[in-house]
Structure formats: C-alpha cells, structure tokens
C-alpha cells in the first residue's frame, strides 16, 4: 500500500529543510562581497582562491589529511582484528571483543578528549600527527568493526579451510585468503573512519597547539572570531571531499556484493 499524498509532501518539505544548510553554505562560498550573505552577492571564486593561497589553511589541510589517513589505518588494522576475534571466539571472550569495539561509540567526545589530553600530553603526543591519529583511530574503529563483522557473518568458512587443508599456515591463510576477502568491508570502514576524523573538532582542539592545527580546529576558531566568506569557502572544499568519499563508499557496496556472489560460487 502506498502512502497518501500528504505524507509524501511532508517528506519532501523535510527533505528540503535537511539540505538547505548545506546549500546555503556552499552558495555563500561563491560570493563576491566581503560578508557571508544568502543569496550571495554576485559570483566569484575569490574566497576559494584566497583559501587555497593561504599557507595557514593549506597547512591545516595537509595536517587533516595526514591525521585522517593514519587514523583510518589504525582503525582498519585494529577494527578488523577485533571483528575476527568477535566472530570466531566463543562466549565471554567474543562478548569482550564486541564490548571493547563499541566502547569508542559510547564515550562522549568531551570525556574522551580530557582523557586523551591527560595521557597523551605526558607522552609528547600533543601537537603532532601521531597523537591525534591514535585518538581518531580508536574513535573510528567501530565503523570498521561493524562493517567487517557483517561481512564475516556471510563469509563461507570453507574458503579458508581449503587453504588450510592445502597446507597453508594460520598466518599465510590470514594474509592471502582472509584479509583479501575482508578488504572491501575494511576499506568502507576505513573511509568512514577517515571522514569521522576529517570532521572532528573537540578531541582535535585538545590535542592541537598553535603550530599544529587541523582543518576543523582552524575553522572552529575562525567561526568563533566572526563569520567570514573564507570559512564558507573552506566548508565547500571540506564538503566536496566528504561527498567524494561518500560516493566511494556507495561504490564499494556493489563491488562487495559481487565479491560475495563470486565467493559463494566457490
């Protein structure tokens, strides 16, 4: 049974409200005036050029990329390991693996931020890529865990058994059979972990200093000191990068389905 017209109209109105903020910000990035206004005055690329030519912004871009990539790597390795443990251990041990993997989702960012700050500052892990990547890596881990666990549930155990029967050791089987099979889910989880790091302000503020700032940290301090079109231009660039990753995530879905079909035929 289809919905009535009213429900569909209500849905469309809410849909418009959902996307308006994104559209407003992207539009104000193209203003030729010097104030953030909607509809924007005229059309120019001056604010985007401004941002791309500003060392402060480009350095923050570089920092955010480096932190995001390293964080995604940590999330992928640890998240896939925990998913394998949770799927293939039994009873209490499996529950411990699951609980520890969802813990980062449950801890409020402010609470985590204080903890990271108290410990990482003592170890010299503030104001650099490694410290923030460790924190973001653990916060992004649940994305990898959930995706890999879901794939593991559908995986045919006979594929790995075939490798073992033919004399491959545990490590060889893991490296040449299991991990390649898990790669699509791990990459999707890693992309999500990258985006969550790319977007994260609170922990990043606690772990940054005047010389080391990520994009959200710099944006946040700019927004607080006053709204300016350059922030809209950065927002536009940030959004474009995120949407490109979103498209990649949706593109991996069909690949994953195809791989699953192929492996089930074996």
């Amino acid at each position: 049974m289809k919905t009535g017209l009213t429900v569909r109209i209500v849905g469309i109105v809410i849909a418009v409200l959902l996307v308006v903020p994104t559209i407003v910000i992207c539009a104000t990035a193209f203003t030729s005036g010097s104030a953030v206004s909607f509809p924007p005055q005229g059309f120019s690329l001056r604010w985007i050029e401004d941002v791309l030519g500003d060392r402060r912004w480009t350095r923050a871009f570089g920092n955010s990329f480096a932190v995001g990539l390293l964080a995604a790597l940590f999330s992928m390795v640890a998240g896939a390991a925990l998913a394998l443990g949770a799927a293939r251990a039994r009873g209490a041990i499996a529950s411990v693996f699951t609980a520890i993997s969802v813990l980062p989702m449950i801890v409020p960012l402010v609470v985590g931020a204080i903890g990271f700050y108290l410990v990482y500052a003592r170890l010299g892990l503030t104001g650099n890529v490694l410290g923030l990547a460790l924190a973001h890596g653990v916060l992004g881990l649940p994305y990898v865990f959930v995706n890999v666990l879901a794939l593991l549930r559908t995986l045919d155990p006979r594929i790995e058994e075939a490798a073992r029967v033919h004399g491959a050791g545990h490590l060889t089987t893991l490296a040449t059979v299991t991990l390649p099979l898990l790669a699509p889910a791990t990459v999707v989880g890693g992309l999500l972990a990258f985006v969550s790091s790319w977007d994260e302000v609170v922990v990043a503020t606690f772990l940054s200093d005047a010389r080391f700032q990520t994009l959200p940290v710099l944006m946040y301090s700019q927004i607080r000191s006053g709204v300016e079109p350059s922030v809209s231009a950065v927002s536009l660039i940030v959004t474009v990068v995120t949407f490109a990753i979103a498209l990649a995530v949706f593109a991996v879905g069909p690949i994953r389905a195809r791989l699953a079909r192929r492996s089930s035929r074996l």
Partner: peptide
C-alpha cells in the same frame, strides 16, 4: 583468532581505556 582479536583489544586498551 583470539590472539588476532587481542591485538585490536590491546590498541583500544592503550589508546582509549587507559586515558
């Protein structure tokens, strides 16, 4: 597989549970 999982567990313990 438990020892593989422990590797991830160790990471969460050090990076999040200790803080």
């Amino acid at each position: 597989w438990i020892s593989v999982g422990l590797l991830g567990l160790l990471f969460v313990l050090l990076a999040l549970v200790v803080p």
